[in-house]
Design a protein around this nucleic acid. Structure first.
Length: 284
DNA sequence: CTAGGATCCTGTCAGC
DNA sequence: TGCTGACAGGATCCTA
């Protein structure tokens, strides 16, 4: 679930809170959620946080790093003097911790970091710091919209001519960072129907997609991601990207902000997909 | 090689 | 109320 903006939000928020802290204790409640030996990170100190697409990496001072992928329902919650929670938006942010969905607990000097994950698709993985870039997922990761050129992106589209454009921009090995929300928002802004074959996308449209992907994600990062980032704010109100800025995602039946046509929900590439049938015309 | 569907797992919600 | 199937902000694996 968390996409690039949410992961970036987590990275920024947690950096301020956990860097320089030592991992005093580490506890794995769900074996599937932790890959590697837990002993390897005990009593190490957190030095730095990095982000690769939707993956977050915590570098330690003993040559090891923790790579974390939240997948659909992962959350990282730091409970210290204040609580900082980000990732999958759910009321669990308000629960007492640990709770039923807590998979890994890292006890630090001034607080505790909880990895929660309802569906157990996410994980924390121990890597050698120097091997982080060689992790299969990170190694295959494409450039993010800020780094890829329109020409490069266009060339990649030609390799997947018959795939719907939505499937293509969700593919992290083609362009990194977009997930289901920002893919829909990007295509809406670009006035491109999600089922358009990637081979039909013009060079201009390729450029537009990149520009809009940057816009929607920057806007989301500025608003703290489409997720709850603050325990106090999380109390009842969900001041998040989805409510404030999303144009089509989760807006089935509501009027298109541009032309007032009701937003439709369809299925593309196996994912729920939101479009304005008037602004995003299907191309034959 | 690409494309599409099933799959991992838990929880919630709409519809009967 | 209880049951059932669909669906979920992701990525990989398997098959054709």
């Amino acid at each position: 679930m968390p996409e690039l903006p949410e992961v970036e939000t987590i990275k920024r928020g947690l950096s301020n809170l956990i860097i320089k802290q030592k991992i005093k204790k580490a506890k794995v409640l769900c074996e599937k959620s932790f890959v590697g030996k837990i002993e390897e990170i005990k009593s190490a100190t957190i030095e730095n946080l990095r982000r690769f697409g939707k993956a977050i990496v915590i570098d330690l001072n003993n040559g090891k790093s923790l790579m974390i992928h939240l997948r659909m329902t992962g959350q990282l919650i730091y409970d210290g003097k204040e609580r900082y929670a980000a990732g999958h938006p759910s009321d669990n942010f308000l629960d007492n911790l640990p709770n039923k969905q807590t998979r890994v607990i890292l006890e630090l000097e001034n607080g505790t970091l909880y990895f929660n994950d309802q569906r157990k698709f996410g994980f924390i993985k121990v890597l050698e710091t120097k091997e982080v870039e060689n992790d299969p997922f990170i190694k295959k990761l494409a450039k993010e919209p800020w780094d890829i050129t329109p020409e490069e992106f266009y060339q990649k589209l030609q390799k997947h001519q018959n795939s719907p454009i939505k499937a293509t921009i969700l593919d992290q090995t083609i362009i990194a960072g977009l997930g289901n929300i920002y893919a829909d928002e990007t295509l809406f802004m670009s006035k491109i129907h999600p089922t358009t074959k990637s081979g039909q996308i013009t060079k201009n449209q390729a450029k537009t997609i990149i520009e809009n992907a940057k816009k929607v994600m920057e806007k989301s990062i500025d608003s703290g991601g489409s997720t709850l980032k603050d325990y106090k704010k999380a109390d009842g109100t969900k001041g998040d990207y989805l409510d404030k800025f999303a144009q089509v995602f989760n807006k089935k039946g509501q009027p298109c902000p541009v032309c007032k046509t009701p937003i439709k929900k369809i299925k593309v590439a196996g994912r729920g997909t939101h479009i304005c049938p008037h602004c995003q015309k299907e191309k034959k």
